[in-house]
């Protein structure tokens, strides 16, 4: 890959604007929030954040909001990630390594099914299925 200039970056954005505007209403209510406190960073949250961006690209999801926050208070299960989207309960996932991050995109966001083994907060116990998400 050649070193890109800012001008080339602007041009690339212009080229992609058309497809972005076509999709501007899709997925815009989906938000992924990655915990990046000291505990999250030490547990590898940077790689988790990167995996989300890679998988969103892989799945051609261009308008999902991806943001960061500090420690969510679940330091024992870092990296932690909150997913907020329509038709699904708000969920905080724990122990989200890059592989689980990709699984969250494919299962939670695309198939609207929770990744049960990694749910650590928010949904009531009765909607988390026993026995994992195999």
């Amino acid at each position: 890959m050649a070193k890109m200039t800012l001008e080339e970056l602007r041009k690339l954005r212009e080229e992609q604007k058309e497809s972005l505007s076509r999709r501007s209403t899709e997925n815009k209510d989906i938000q992924i929030i990655v915990g990046m406190g000291t505990c999250g960073i030490a547990a590898g949250a940077k790689e988790t954040l990167n995996a989300f961006i890679e998988e969103l690209e892989e799945q051609d999801l261009k308008t999902v909001r991806v943001t960061q926050t500090g420690c969510m208070g679940l330091c024992y299960v870092e990296p932690t990630v909150e997913v907020v989207m329509p038709d699904m309960p708000d969920v905080i996932y724990g122990n989200v390594d890059p592989e689980i991050a990709r699984k969250i995109i494919r299962k939670h966001i695309l198939n609207k099914t929770m990744v049960n083994d990694h749910v650590f907060d928010r949904p009531a116990a009765d909607i988390v299925e026993e026995g994992g998400d195999q």
Partner: peptide, 14 residues
Amino acid sequence: TSGSLRLLRTYLQS
């Protein structure tokens, strides 16, 4: 948003 973050990531990697 994921589309703009992807562009930024590509730029930084380059």
